[in-house]
């Protein structure tokens, strides 16, 4: 029985490991509350509010020669761009990366929500020799509370 429990524990630890990766996302709401964002899981936002999406990109093996600055952010299939003032999540400034240490790069994207609806932010890293990275963050802007 002791062994079966041990195996179970090891398997659970290893299984949990399957849900990790090199890019991590956290979002901070206007009140300063920070929440972790998981791709594919909806994050609920208030309308007409300002949020900060912090992204940290850890370079695992540096197999991909593409710089962090070449990471693509596509909001509903279009570049997430502060110049596109029609986008439902209005980006306040271009996304710029900061090299925190030799392997860790970080950025913060500040945006304002507008109309209620569900919007997908696709994060893509296209590497010439590798499959790269792809994740989708789902933002649900809730209707205003009466």
């Amino acid at each position: 029985m002791k062994r079966i429990i041990m195996i179970g524990v090891f398997l659970l630890i290893a299984m949990a490991a399957a849900w990790t990766c090199e890019l991590t996302y956290t979002i901070t709401n206007p009140l300063g509350k920070t929440t972790s964002v998981a791709p594919g899981k909806p994050i609920y936002l208030e309308p007409n509010a300002s949020y900060s999406l912090a992204i940290s990109f850890y370079e695992d093996h540096r197999n991909c020669p593409v710089a962090p600055s070449a990471t693509l952010f596509l909001l509903d299939g279009a570049r997430w761009n502060p110049a596109r003032d029609t986008q439902p999540l209005l980006l306040s400034a271009p996304i710029t990366w900061k090299e925190t240490n030799s392997r860790l790069n970080e950025t913060v994207a500040t945006f304002t929500t507008r109309e209620p609806g569900t919007y997908t932010l696709e994060i893509l890293r296209e590497c010439p020799t590798k499959a790269g990275y792809s994740a989708q963050l789902i933002f649900v802007v809730l209707p205003p509370q009466p």
Binding site: L11, A14, M15, A17, A18, W19, T20, C21, E22, L23, T24, Y25, S36, V37, A38, P39, G40, A131, Y133, S134, A135
Partner: peptide
């Protein structure tokens, strides 16, 4: 709570 990246095999290999 870090994120899924199903294109990576290292954790399955670990298992």
């Amino acid at each position: 709570s870090s994120l899924a990246n199903s294109s990576h095999s290292n954790l399955w290999v670990l298992l």
